[in-house]
Amino acid sequence: MLAEKYAERIQKIFSKYPDKRSAVMPLLYVAQEEFGWVSPEAIEEVAVLCEIDPTQVKSIAGFYTMYSEKPKGKYWLQVCTDFPCALRGADQFHQALLDHLGIEEGGTTEDGLFTVEHVMCLAACDKAPMLQCNFHYVENLDMDKMKALLDQWRADAKDSAAD
């Protein structure tokens, strides 16, 4: 499926490397973008594309934390709670966000929109509390700002679903 849908993009990725197996990481990102997570089927497909055993692909997906082997919400919110952020109230912010969405750490909202988890340093200590949403930074947060953002994302999701 990926091979047909993203033929051009995959070709471009392959062209950057001397052999096919080197392309496994960018291809995993393509798969994750497409499905929202790295599913066993996606692993199988990337393995076929790279001509390696699926076990090797799974190993890579497991080692790197930016690949998710569990289904995630449409918006994957990773809150940094490392030491400097914690000093600026990241822990409280993280907890408040979980309470607001009514989920546990690492959980996903029932509508399938939001997954929240805490992560180690994202190197934006000066702008804490902060989080990354689908790998894009959102900084200098408090719950008021956050609620507004959540509303906006909900609206965006509705729009894209209507399209």
């Binding site: 390696i52 055993d53 076990t55 090797q56 190993s59 497991g62 080692f63």
Partner: peptide, 10 residues
């Protein structure tokens, strides 16, 4: 020559 075992997670 069988790449069928690997470490997962860390």
């Amino acid at each position: 020559g069988d790449d069928v075992l690997a470490f997962h997670e860390r």
